[in-house]
Design a protein around this nucleic acid. Structure first.
Lengths: 106, 106
DNA sequence: TTGACATGATACCATTTGGTATCTATTCAA
DNA sequence: TTGAATAGATACCAAATGGTATCATGTCAA
């Protein structure tokens, strides 16, 4: 499976991975540091990092015996591109919805 | 599982479901009409629609013996909200869409 | 009224996913 | 130099996921 859009959406589909992304938005981290933040084993965290890496959301560099993972914001592009497809639709429909709600008598 | 953000991301994690969302952006459709667009059974399409419904991305109304599914743009709000968390990571290339997202009503 | 049509409801299956346990390899530091 | 720290690899497991097949139900239309 190589479709970047699918890989990115899949990477974001898990709550732990979204939390990891949020943590990495503050600063890069090693696997061990990330593991401290979650109630699961290092192996599980590493699996999530692999999925995030496949999705292009994260890059890894080796620092001595450590592997430092850092957020790659460019990896979000396929997701944002896909969402952009609906830009106008959302605007219009959400406006309609809002108007309908406002029109409604209490 | 009731977290709206998780339900929405999960709903978007499957390529068939994203295609359904795109189709519904043009016009509402029955299960049968949607099934014609994909190489899978009606039951499979219906399952996807259930997941999309759980994610709040889609609403259904009964029209006689038909079930008409329509896109609910409000369901995308949790996804857009989550993405906004990374505002400071967007580079210039992604800036346009970021602004489009920020423009969205809640 | 009587089928045909659109859908609902189950039951079932294979694969993927999220997770653990265990063992090995590398590297830093006392 | 040697032991602890950091990570990789592999095997394994339970549950979720994406799909099919089958049968039941409600509804339109001739």
């Amino acid at each position: 499976m190589t479709d970047p859009t699918q890989l990115a959406f899949r990477a974001l589909a898990d709550p732990t991975r979204r939390d990891i992304v949020r943590l990495l938005a503050r600063d890069e981290m090693t696997i061990g540091q990330l593991t401290d933040k979650f109630d699961m084993t290092r192996a599980a965290v590493r699996k999530h990092l692999t999925v995030l890496g496949d999705g292009g959301l994260v890059t890894v560099r080796t620092r001595g015996r450590e592997r430092v993972t850092r957020l790659d914001p460019a990896g979000m592009a396929p997701v944002l591109d896909w969402l952009r497809y609906f830009d106008r639709f959302w605007d219009d429909r959400l406006n309609d919805l809002q108007k309908a709600i406002e029109r409604k008598p209490k």
